[in-house]
């Protein structure tokens, strides 16, 4: 999973199936990644940055899933 576009596509597809607003997650993840000094390849990110991005994705998905459950 080194190509940013592939990463976004895969994530967006997965989340779209999980809850109604999953498609919004694509823009959300893109916005997160764009904050890292123009890095566009997964290999360019430090391990800390990768953890930070994944944790943010994980937490927001949990929050939205719970919101959908009501």
């Amino acid at each position: 999973m080194t190509d940013l576009q592939t990463f976004l596509d895969n994530e967006a597809e997965a989340y779209a199936d999980m809850f109604e607003g999953g498609y919004v997650i694509r823009g959300f993840i893109r916005s997160i990644i764009e904050g890292y000094d123009g890095k566009s390849d997964w290999r360019e990110f430090t391990p800390e940055e990768r953890s930070e991005i994944i944790l943010n994705c994980h937490r927001i998905v949990e929050l939205l899933r719970r919101a959908e459950e009501g």
Partner: peptide, 29 residues
């Protein structure tokens, strides 16, 4: 995706009791 201040904000759950900070979903870098 063009939301200003995105990297400075925090997103939390809407379930806010007023007793504690609600569950946090996103923490801007």
């Amino acid at each position: 995706p063009d939301m200003p201040q995105f990297h400075r904000v925090v997103f939390t759950s809407i379930k806010a009791s007023g007793d504690h900070i609600p569950q946090i979903g996103y923490v801007g870098k």
